[in-house]
Amino acid sequence: MRFGLSFLPDCTPETKSPQTYFSDALELSVRAELGGLETIKMTEHYLHHYGGYCPSPLGFLSAVAARTASVRLMTGCVLPVFHHPIQLAAEAAQVDAISGGRLDVGFARAYLPDEFDALGLPMEESTERFRETVRAVLRLWTEEEVSEDTPFFSYRDVTGLPRPTQRPHPPAWGAAVRTPESFTWLGTEGLGLLITPLISPHEFRDHLTLYRDAFHAAHGGTGLRPRVAASLPLVVADTDARAERIAETHLRRYLDVWALAVNAWDRRESTAYRGYSGFGWMLRGLKPTELFTRGGAIVGSPATVVDRIRAFNDHIGGVDQILWQIDFGAMPLAEAGQTLELFCSEVLPEVKSL
């Protein structure tokens, strides 16, 4: 199993300024590479304190590339529904070149109503727009004189530049959360799967089976294999009690900021997002202790964390990579750095053979 860091800004100006947030994130990225972690991931969002500091994961990853030598750089995720495929394919290929071929590109459909409303896009067409844009990006990376004619964009005889450094293109991933059809589609398309198990790994086990079955049905015998990466909050401290105190404070902030971003779902329904109505109520009702007692976060002393990682991997049915959120809830650099140091020195040697 491989490990890395997953960033999603959840700061307010009172808890961390944008300058401090990115200074901390870049410092943690450098330390992660030195400690033996393999991936740095960043997510795109707008308008809200949940993610809104980072409208451009590719911009952040370009800065990480300049400070590191070998760590993989992953968008987790860019939101294709808000971008033209020519622009997205070109900007990603540029970062692939800057980094010497270290980029992985994760795509997500987007799900925050305020983002769609402000950018003037209907949520009901998000699935088709997402899929058409992802397919178009992959064509622009691998083909020349590409033509497209969709309800969302059209062009003729386009050859994208720069060409990707990695061939045939950077590894591509897609995020799925609730909709079974999303897991099936990602498997059929041959993309890696990105998940964030919010409460319990058990809730994702059947969905991972859907993904893997669809992948094998479409790509069996080709040499391609399904890939699953999970993002989880992590706190490691010298004792379980200390880790849990840190986690409770910052998980509460993390959940509160997230709940504010999804408030619109308390009064909204969409046929494209079945099961999302009331999302804010659900987040506000969650207790931080529920996350780390049921497996939605990993918290404890090094020995406890080793046991909980093994239990998580068993309960979910196995993942290829875990990307840790170690700075959630606007956590200070000192505490996030402690988690990273203890994980790399005392936990990683015990779990990397999973």
Rank of each mutant, 00 (worst) to 15 (best):
R129A: 09
L251D: 06
E248W: 06
D256K: 07
R163C: 12
F153P: 01
E189N: 04
L138D: 05
A230V: 01
L234K: 00
L224E: 15
L140M: 07
R212T: 15
T188G: 10
A176N: 05
P233T: 07
P168I: 10
F183L: 07
S126D: 01
H250T: 07
D149V: 04
D238E: 15
Y211T: 05
W185T: 04
G187C: 11
V257S: 02
F116E: 00
L193C: 06
A118G: 05
W173D: 05
A136D: 08
R212P: 03
T239Q: 09
T209I: 15
S231G: 09
H250W: 11
V158S: 02
T209C: 12
W173T: 07
F152I: 09
F130G: 02
W185I: 03
R131W: 05
A172S: 11
D213Q: 13
Q166P: 14
R252I: 02
V177Q: 07
G190F: 05
R163T: 14
I246N: 10
G223D: 12
T159R: 14
P180M: 09
P233H: 04
H219C: 11
A176S: 12
Y155K: 12
E125F: 08
L121H: 06
T133G: 02
V177I: 13
E145A: 13
G160S: 15
E124I: 07
Y211C: 09
F204A: 10
Y155M: 03
L234T: 03
E115T: 13
P197Y: 03
V236E: 01
M123A: 06
H216M: 15
R252S: 04
T188N: 07
E203T: 15
